[in-house]
């Protein structure tokens, strides 16, 4: 009869209320993801004074400003680079990167793979809405084939990244994917991602109703977020490479939940230990 309660989480404690209402379009999944992130922060008991949010450019990047923490809205594609410096210089801070599919995978793709490889204690939340929303709806590295955007007016023909597979292949210690409609699951995933010592990559399937959904006849926000969920299949929570719910009933494609969790040496700690060894050797 364990009574767990969500009572203590009041999102307003984590928001810069004077900036509201926020600038996101109606039904934008980024807002839901933001809630999940702050909820996870709350559950982990992270003091917002010790929380650093580094975000890139785009709709995703703008969300950081609404968080009442140390927020850094940096250059396009580079939040992981900034965060790397910040986290190495300030291991006492909890550094979370908010980025988008274009920010993270296109212009910032190089930083992503190296951040994964380096395995520094960072959490990267990539809000994937399949489109460059802020610039008016151009195709991104995750825009599915046949989708219409302002730069794929006859339907996209480019293959897409599976960002999670990319991150895992690049060596990220923790990789997960979740949809916004599963807010508590997303919260749990982010919570585990932040708690994970090492580089954590979380892809959030967000929806861009106004610019992308309309153009592709994907329905309004409620339907979009529901569709996202149903095209996913959950990996067994907490089990690495766990089984998935689909046979014999579901035709699905991407997995959700924790996809990879390995304990590789965390770069920051490894570096500090290495440096301490060097200093000790010099003294003796």
């Amino acid at each position: 009869m364990d009574e767990i309660s969500a009572d203590s989480f009041n999102i307003r404690d984590y928001l810069r209320l004077e900036l509201f209402p926020h600038f996101l379009c109606p039904g934008c999944g980024h807002g839901i993801a933001l809630r999940a992130l702050l909820w996870a922060i709350h559950e982990l008991g992270i003091d917002k004074n010790d929380l650093a949010i580094v975000s890139g450019i785009g709709c995703s990047g703008r969300t950081g400003a609404y968080i009442d923490a140390n927020t850094f809205h940096v250059t396009h594609g580079r939040p992981l680079a900034f965060a790397t410096g910040l986290a190495l210089a300030r291991p006492d801070l909890e550094v979370v990167v908010i980025t988008g599919d274009g920010d993270c995978l296109a212009i910032g793709g190089n930083h992503l793979i190296h951040a994964c490889r380096r395995n520094l204690n960072l959490t990267c939340m990539m809000l994937n809405n399949e489109v460059y929303g802020m610039t008016g709806g151009q195709a991104s590295p995750t825009t599915s084939a046949t989708r219409y955007t302002t730069t794929t007016q006859s339907g996209s023909i480019e293959p897409v990244f599976d960002a999670c597979a990319l991150a895992a292949a690049a060596g990220a210690g923790f990789v997960g994917r979740e949809v916004t409609i599963q807010t508590p699951a997303l919260k749990n995933l982010l919570r585990d991602a932040i708690a994970h010592k090492g580089f954590s990559f979380v892809e959030v399937l967000s929806d861009c109703t106004e610019i992308f959904g309309r153009k592709n006849d994907l329905g309004e926000s409620p339907e979009m977020i529901m569709t996202q969920k149903s095209t996913m299949r959950p990996a067994s929570y907490g089990v690495v490479g766990g089984n998935i719910v689909d046979e014999p009933f579901r035709a699905t494609n991407l997995k959700t939940g924790i996809l990879t969790r390995t304990d590789r040496p965390e770069y920051g700690a490894a570096y500090r230990a290495h440096a301490a060894g060097i200093r000790a050797a010099r003294k003796s």
Partner: peptide, 17 residues
């Protein structure tokens, strides 16, 4: 049940208990 609170992208709904 809080589902509306969780899913509101605009933080416009709070369930106060």
């Amino acid at each position: 049940c809080r589902i509306c609170e969780w899913l509101c992208p605009d933080f416009a709904i709070d369930v106060i208990k």
